[in-house]
Simulated scan of single mutants.
Amino acid sequence: MTAHTPETSGKTYSVTRTDEQWRAQLDPQEYHVLRQAGTERPFTGEYEDTTTEGVYACRACGAELFTSSEKFSSHCGWPSFFDPKDSDAVELLEDRSLGMRRVEVRCATCGSHLGHVFEGEGYPTPTDQRYCINSISLTLRPTQA
């Protein structure tokens, strides 16, 4: 598990809490990933292989982020989506941690770290993007039958 201190985007989020409040709400692993920009170990998350239909929401604030119709199997070890539910559901920030240049994905409602987005990997999706998202950053709300 790696972590870096998230850079501030300068954005004011509609859901804000103190660090103490986040620690009280989230378990230590959730806090590490969502608030410290950590990463869960590959192939360990509960949503990596799920095909349940529904909406994936931010575990920290409940904002709707992705749907099962945008989820695809990339076999990378984390849930993958080719697009967010709405274009303003996530915030994209440059991430230069760990000696790499990547694009970090955050919840646009609370600023929690979700994962990273990659382009041009050749997956047969409409956007040629892979939103590589930590399962622990999400809560699946199944579609009611």
Rank of each mutant, 00 (worst) to 15 (best):
A89C: 09
H32N: 10
E121P: 08
T52H: 03
T127A: 02
T139I: 12
R59S: 03
V55I: 15
E46Y: 05
L34A: 12
C58V: 13
E70G: 05
T125H: 10
T2I: 13
H75T: 06
F66I: 01
E91Y: 12
Y131H: 15
E48A: 07
F43C: 02
E94I: 10
R41P: 09
Q25R: 03
C132T: 15
Q36N: 06
S73I: 08
F66W: 07
V33T: 06
H4C: 09
L114T: 15
A37L: 11
W78M: 02
Q25T: 02
A145C: 13
V15A: 08
D88K: 14
A108L: 07
C61E: 02
S137A: 07
Y56E: 01
C58D: 14
M1L: 07
Y31P: 02
D128P: 05
G45F: 10
S74Q: 07
E46D: 11
R141N: 04
G115V: 05
S69L: 14
T109C: 01
E40I: 13
E64D: 15
L140A: 06
T16P: 00
H116I: 00
Y13L: 00
E104H: 05
V105E: 02
D49T: 12
A89K: 06
E53W: 11
H4E: 05
S9V: 06
D95K: 11
E94Y: 01
V103C: 12
A3K: 11
E30Y: 04
E48I: 06
L98W: 15
W78R: 00
L34P: 10
W22G: 00
P124V: 05
D19N: 10
T52W: 08
V117T: 14
T139D: 12
T5I: 08
G120V: 04
G77Y: 11
T39S: 05
D128R: 06
P126S: 07
T52D: 04
S68G: 10
E20W: 00
N134W: 02
A60T: 11
H32W: 14
I133R: 10
M100W: 13
F43R: 00
L26D: 04
V33C: 10
G115I: 02
S69H: 14
R102K: 03
S73G: 04
I133D: 01
R35C: 06
G45S: 13
D86R: 14
S9Y: 13
M1W: 12
